[in-house]
């Protein structure tokens, strides 16, 4: 603190009222603001958890506060739907897309950050421009394209995992590459230069020097891609039409679309299950989150 502490230590104890007013002015109002915010933030989550445990299992029978603890909804979900397949599909897309995107994006960010080559400027600006045409806007073209591709290669046609994963990977180089490049730029060049002096090749510099130093941004991009893929609906709904090939998100959508009231308990269980991987990813990567999210932004 550079401001000198001008207050003189109190010689006598303040009265209780004074201390309360001081506390209210400094911290008390903050608690008063936070409680409504916390209630606003938590009540839907509380409701969905209550509904998942609710023995009645209907929307009309669900209460904000848990009325009982029963596994009936979970049993219904496991028995009446291909839940396991949906779940595995969701995780396949989310993990596969996150892992490969992080790799592809880091490779490109390394080139953009450390090398000077013809087309670098065009490439960087091009990445920004292509962001303005999000992939799902081309959904009609992707649909028509894969109608033909699926005829030639049934492995990547509709209702297959590999086909949709390929489409997702089309978005691997994106604004995330910018985020990564910004972070790579903060790693001092002297580090890789000295490694090259020691005889390291560019690949060794990348894998052994750079990657360990930029873990926060790798984690945050992985998290962002994971979360957006597991919640992706538009492309998946066009691509995966067979019940057995669908993701958990699509399955849940249809579950409450057909029988909104009766299936709500099952839906609530599925919603909690779908949130668990996201919560886990947040939990394990929490120390990177504020660092990774803000580094690219703050340094501007």
């Amino acid at each position: 603190m550079s401001v000198p502490d001008t207050t003189v230590r109190p010689v006598h104890r303040r009265s209780t009222t004074d201390r309360f007013l001081l506390w209210a002015g400094r911290l008390g109002w903050r608690h008063a603001v936070m409680w409504p915010v916390v209630i606003f933030a938590v009540f839907p989550v509380l409701f969905v958890v209550s509904a998942a445990l609710n023995p009645i299992g209907t929307l009309s029978g669900s209460r904000l506060w848990p009325t009982g603890a029963s596994m009936a909804n979970a049993q219904d979900l496991f028995q009446n739907t291909p839940f396991a397949t949906w779940y595995v599909n969701s995780l396949f897309f989310a993990i596969g897309n996150a892992a490969i995107t992080v790799l592809l994006s880091a490779l490109a960010a390394y080139a953009f950050s450390r090398m000077r080559f013809k087309g670098r400027r065009v490439g960087l600006i091009g990445l920004l421009v292509i962001q303005m045409f999000p992939q799902f806007l081309a959904i009609v073209a992707i649909y028509l394209m894969f109608s033909d591709l699926g005829e030639l290669y049934p492995v990547i046609g509709f209702d297959t995992r590999w086909g949709l994963l390929l489409v997702y990977l089309g978005g691997a180089l994106s604004i995330n590459t910018w985020l990564m490049k910004g972070f790579f730029d903060t790693v001092p060049r002297e580090l890789d230069e000295s490694a090259q002096m020691d005889g390291a090749t560019h690949a060794q510099v990348f894998f052994r020097i750079m990657l360990p130093l930029v873990t926060p941004v790798l984690a945050i991009v992985g998290l962002l891609v994971f979360v957006s893929t597991i919640n992706e609906f538009l492309l998946a709904s066009v691509f995966l039409r067979d019940t057995g090939a669908q993701t958990l998100g699509l399955g849940l959508y249809q579950l409450v679309d057909s029988q909104r009231n009766a299936n709500f308990g099952m839906f609530a269980v599925g919603a909690v299950m779908l949130s668990l991987p996201t919560l886990a990813v947040f939990w394990f990567l929490q120390r990177y989150i504020s660092e990774g999210l803000t580094t690219g932004a703050v340094k501007g």
Binding site: P44, I230, N231, E232, G249, L252, A271
Partner: peptide, 11 residues
Amino acid sequence: YAMSSLAMYLL
């Protein structure tokens, strides 16, 4: 933010 947004929209 940490909940699945797809499920939360439906909720």
